[in-house]
Design a protein around this nucleic acid. Sequence first.
DNA 1: TCTATATGTGCGATATACGCACAATCTGCA
DNA 2: TGCAGATTGTGCGTATATCGCACATATAGA
Lengths: 249, 249
Amino acid sequence: MQNRNIASTFAKGLAVLGAFDGGTPVLSLAEIARRSSLDRAAARRLVLTLVDQGFVETDGARGYRLTPRVLRFAGGYLSGRQVGRLVQPVLDRHAAQAGAPISMAVLDGQDVLLLAQSTLQNSVVTFGFTLGSTLPLLHTSLGRMLLALRPADVAARLLATAPMQARTPEALTDRRLISAEVDQARSAGLCIARAQLEAGITGYAVPTGPETVIGLSRAHGLGRDAQADQAAIKALQLCAAELIQTGAV
Amino acid sequence: MQNRNIASTFAKGLAVLGAFDGGTPVLSLAEIARRSSLDRAAARRLVLTLVDQGFVETDGARGYRLTPRVLRFAGGYLSGRQVGRLVQPVLDRHAAQAGAPISMAVLDGQDVLLLAQSTLQNSVVTFGFTLGSTLPLLHTSLGRMLLALRPADVAARLLATAPMQARTPEALTDRRLISAEVDQARSAGLCIARAQLEAGITGYAVPTGPETVIGLSRAHGLGRDAQADQAAIKALQLCAAELIQTGAV
DNA sequence: TCTATATGTGCGATATACGCACAATCTGCA
DNA sequence: TGCAGATTGTGCGTATATCGCACATATAGA
C-alpha cells in the first residue's frame, strides 16, 4: 500500500542524485538508470531536472556529472551543526600535535561516512578521502568503533550484512573474528585495526559521542609497536575530550 | 507551457532540501514551506520523503534538520573531481607555508561557494566557514576575483543584482566602486579586499582556472602593509601554479 | 560498414500529487 | 489557567504530472 505522505517522484530523484557516487566521475543516462533501478525515460527526466536546477551538468557529449552546487547541501548540514566553528579547530589543533590527520565519522547505512577531517601538510597517509567520503564498515577502525557504539542487536545485524570488502592479505574475512574485534572495542572504548584497509597502515579510533567517532592512521613497521599505538590513542582521546567539551557532538 | 522533460515534483523537493541552509539549524514545516514557496501540505509530503530517505530527521518536537547523509552528495562531487587527492594536499602544503588557511571557491548563482579549504592549527582567521559554505559575492576578494573571471556582460549583470551585504564601516556600498575593484582584479590577475567582509581583515584571491579561485585572509593593522600584501599574493600564486599543474581545476 | 548500445521523443493511460478544508495540537502571553 | 494565534495533521476529490512503451535516431567500437 503506497504511503500518500511520500512523494515517490522525489524519492526516485534522490536515487538518481545518489547514483553520482564519485567512483565514476561522468555517468551516462543508461548507467544512471541502472544504478537507480529506474526506467530509462524516467531516469532521463530526473537527470534533466537536476541539470535544470543546476546540480548536474553535461560534459558536452553524453555524460553527466555533479556540479559544485551539491556542496550547498553539505554546507547546510555543516553550518547547521557548527562543524566549522566547533569541530574543525579542535581537529586541526590535535592533528597538528599528533602529526597525523584526524577524521570524524558516523555510521550511515552500511558505511562509515566522513563528517570532518583535518588534513596536514606532507601527510603520509591521505588516500584522497574527503568529507562525504564513505569507507568500509568492517575493515576500518572507524567502522568497528561505530559498530561498538551501537546496541548489540543493531551491531549484530550490520556485522552479518555489511559488505565484506577485504583488500589486504591481513584483512579479516571471518565475520565472527570481526565481531570479536568490535566486542573488544566496545569493552576498551577504543579500536586499533592493523592493515585492514591498506597494507602497512594501522588505523586507530575512539568515540566522541553516542554516534560519532574520530580516528587517525599511521604507517607501521613489521612488528607491533605498542608505544606508537599508545601515543596515537592518547592523542585521539585528548582530542575527543575537547570535542565532547564543545558540545558539538 | 510545462516542460515535460522536467519532473516538477522533484524540482520542488530540491527546493525543500535547499531550505536547510544552515543559518537556522532546525526548521519548522511552516518555515520550510515559506522558504521554498510551496503549499504547506506539499512541503510536508516532501519533507516526509526526505525523512523516509534518511536525509532529514525530526528533533522529536516539530522541528526538522539535515542528517549527515546529505554529505554523500558532496562526497560524490569531491571524489568525482579528485579533490581529496589532487587539490587538498596542495592547499595543505601552501597553507602551512603561508601560515594562513587557503580556500578554493567557485561562483554559484549569486554566491561564492567554497569547494575546498585547508584549515590550520591556531588559525587567527576562521569564521567557521567550511566546504559548502557560501560567502557574499560583492564583499569578498574571492567573489570579486570570480566576477573578474567571467565575461564582462555576465559580471555586469551580477554586479547589478547580487545582494549588497556590506557589514563593515569600510565596506563599499556603491556598485560602481565595486565594479571598479573587479575591473582592477581582472587587469592585475589578483584581488585584495581590505575590511570588506570583516573589520580588520584583508582578503586576497587569485585565479586557478577559468572558473575557480583560491584565497586567504589575514588580520591587518591600521595602515596598508604592502609587504604583507605581496607575501600573501605570492603565496597564493605559488599555490595556484601547483594546482594548475595537477590539472584538477 | 555493421552491430550493439545508447539516446531522444511523442503519446495515451493512470497513478501521483495537489491544494483545500476541517480538526487537532502547540505556544506564548495575560 | 485560559485563550488566541499559529502550526500541524489528515482525508479526499480532482487534475495533472509522470509513467513506460515503442519507434526512430545517434554513437561507439570492432
